[in-house]
Amino acid sequence: MKTTMTVNGQASTLDLDPRTTLLDALREHLNLKGSKKGCDHGQCGACTVLVNGVRINSCLSLAVMHDGDAVTTIEGLGVVGALHPLQEAFLKQDAFQCGYCTPGQICSAAGMLKELADNWPSQETADLTAAIVATDAEIRERMSGNICRCSAYPQILAAIRDVVGAVA
């Protein structure tokens, strides 16, 4: 089945078995191996990508559902020499050990920054009608869909904090 997506700014038309997940289309058909297959059931977040700027689990989506969509993977977020601020911050804060979850963590954090800017609430938000304050508890909660087997969570929080800025 023909599916056209704009992946990292480049239009690609693929002829796919409808069973192909977005994750497998990215990894196996477009050779973008940054997005990882961890659990393949939406539980670990390693496959997180941005679709039209919104973070989703690419393992729980069929590629054919995304005809016409704009997909951003870790490869499109930044490149060597022009890293995304989150990539710079993850390096600076040593926010990984094995690195397997890192592309998903960074794509998830990128999506989270937009959600914060749009004032979306989380379960840590005490006042649903006020402006969100990006406390550490808020950031941790908003990143709970991304598991890190090496447990680099304190450094991941520090890296995201570098980009979000200190809370007054």
Binding site: G42, G45, T48, V54, R55, I56, N57, L60, S61, S108, G111, M112, E115, P121, S122, Q123, T125, R142, S144, G145
Partner: peptide, 11 residues
């Protein structure tokens, strides 16, 4: 916002 993860809720 007590259900699932942000990625799941977004889809």
């Amino acid at each position: 916002i007590h259900g699932g993860s942000p990625q799941l809720r977004n889809k």
